[in-house]
């Protein structure tokens, strides 16, 4: 299976390493032509403003939206912001997923944290999650549904059909269950 990782800026190599460990062929996507023949695409963590501006500059927004209508997409952190419909401020978004996201919702870097989550779709808890200047999924609507929350109920993972959004970074831990789950969606 060929999976793409959007490689405009951010932690794309970490996703690539996990996917390759699971036997996927991985393509780094920087231009629209790189999307040809892919079964799914990961939008990695990084700076969402940087990724958005580069996507606009290299005419990727429309090709990414069209690709997403047919295939699996997964946004982690900045990627989840990029995938969402609303982030309360003007910046380039794919605007596909029915989630409302607040950027830097947990504070600055000194407030970044690690915690164990329960993600029922992945089987036995815990799923260890790393949050870095993380966004929060404030609400889900339409056919989007909640996949995981913090102990206080705030939403940190959501799914809508073949689209996933996570506030945290499964690519920074050794637990590859989220990547396996995504590869099944991409099949």
């Amino acid at each position: 299976m060929k999976i793409g990782v959007l490689a405009l800026q951010g932690a794309f190599a970490e996703h690539q390493a996990v996917l390759e460990g699971l036997g996927a062929e991985v393509v780094q996507v920087r231009l629209p032509k790189d999307l040809d023949g892919l079964s799914g695409l990961i939008l990695p963590g990084g700076e969402s403003t940087t990724i958005g501006k580069l996507a606009v500059a290299f005419n990727l927004l429309e090709p990414l939206r069209a690709f997403g209508q047919q295939h699996a997409l997964w946004g982690t952190c900045a990627g989840a912001i990029f995938l969402s419909k609303d982030v309360h401020r003007p910046q380039p978004l794919l605007g596909l997923m029915d989630i409302q996201v607040a950027r830097n919702a947990f504070g600055r870097q000194v407030d970044s944290f690690e915690v164990d989550l329960n993600v029922p779709e992945l089987g036995e808890p815990p799923f260890h999650a790393v949050f870095i200047r993380a966004p929060l999924i404030e609400s889900v609507s339409g056919s989007a549904r909640v996949m995981a929350t913090l102990p206080d109920g705030r939403i940190v993972a959501a799914q809508q059909g073949r689209w996933l959004a996570t506030s945290f970074h499964p690519e920074l831990t050794r637990d590859d269950r989220f990547h396996r789950f995504f590869m099944e969606l991409a099949q």
Binding site: A7, G10, G45, Q109, F113, V115, F131, H169
Partner: peptide, 22 residues
């Protein structure tokens, strides 16, 4: 596990998010 701030993983992690950037 209780929530943990300031770990080496989150310190190193922010730098990982800056990769490929200026």
């Amino acid at each position: 596990m209780e929530q943990q701030v300031g770990s080496f993983a989150v310190k190193k992690g922010l730098a990982q998010m800056l990769k490929g950037g200026v």
